[in-house]
Every structure is written in structure tokens, then in C-alpha cells.
Amino acid sequence: MQTFTEKAVAIIQQIPAGHVMTYGQVASEAGNPRGARQVVRVLHSMSKKYDLPWHRIINAQGGISTPEKAEAKGDTQRQRLESEGIQFDDKGKIPLDIYRWHPPLEI
């Protein structure tokens, strides 16, 4: 049986280019609907090891969540998403009804 972390990694690895998922959505799909902060931890500690497409994970409002001190990382995330064809609205948000990815039932 897979752990939450293993499930989260598997889900994130499968997000196709040009699509996004929210932290909470990944957490829910991995078995813990209240585990959005755990997804942050997974991304922070395992993105390099598993070559995770970290830039495809956004907040529930369709925005990029980066601390003010990490503004350059937010710029990098936006550039990567735009290079995959994702368009931001005039408020800097990604329309989730267009770009949200839903994984297959079995991961």
C-alpha cells in the first residue's frame, strides 16, 4: 500500500504539460483532503529527487503561491506555465475551469 507521499509524487509526476492542479486537489487525490501543506512539503523536499513538475501546482484561487522573498521563483513558475501554453487572466490567475487536470481514477 502506498503512503500519502508516494501517492502525491505519483500524481504530480503525471500532470501533463499545459495543465495544473491545486495543492488541495493533489492532497485529496492522494487520500488526505486536508493535506495541502503536506503537498507543499513533498514539493519542497522531493522535486529535485523525482524531477517533479512543481510549477504545475498552484493555489485554490488559481494563483502562484510564493513568499515575497521568493518572488523570482514565482516569476520562474509563471514563465514555465506560459511556455506550456497556460494563459493567465488580467488578475494574474489561471482559469481552473480551463487548465485544471483531473487524474485518472487509478494512480
Score class of each variant (00 low, 15 high):
Glu68Ser: 07
Ala70Lys: 10
Ala70Gln: 11
Glu71His: 08
Glu71Arg: 00
Glu71Phe: 13
Ala72Glu: 06
Ala72Arg: 11
Lys73Pro: 01
Gly74Ala: 10
Gly74Trp: 06
Gly74Pro: 06
Gly74Lys: 09
Asp75Pro: 06
Asp75His: 13
Asp75Trp: 11
Thr76Phe: 07
Thr76Glu: 05
Gln77Ile: 14
Gln77Glu: 09
Gln77Cys: 07
Gln77Lys: 15
Arg78Pro: 03
Arg78Ile: 01
Arg78Tyr: 00
Gln79Phe: 12
Arg80Asn: 07
Arg80Ile: 11
Arg80Trp: 02
Arg80Tyr: 05
Arg80Pro: 05
Glu82Phe: 14
Glu82Gly: 10
Glu82Leu: 13
Glu82Met: 15
Glu82Cys: 14
Glu84Asp: 02
Glu84Lys: 15
Glu84Leu: 12
Gly85Met: 05
Gly85Gln: 02
Ile86Ala: 00
Gln87Ser: 07
Gln87Thr: 15
Gln87Lys: 10
Phe88Glu: 01
Asp89Met: 07
Asp89Tyr: 08
Asp90Ser: 06
Asp90His: 04
Lys91Leu: 09
Lys91Met: 12
Lys91Tyr: 07
Lys91Phe: 06
Gly92Gln: 04
Gly92Leu: 02
Lys93Leu: 15
Lys93Ile: 09
Ile94Asp: 07
Pro95Tyr: 09
Leu96Phe: 08
Leu96His: 09
Asp97Asn: 15
Ile98Val: 14
Ile98His: 14
Ile98Pro: 15
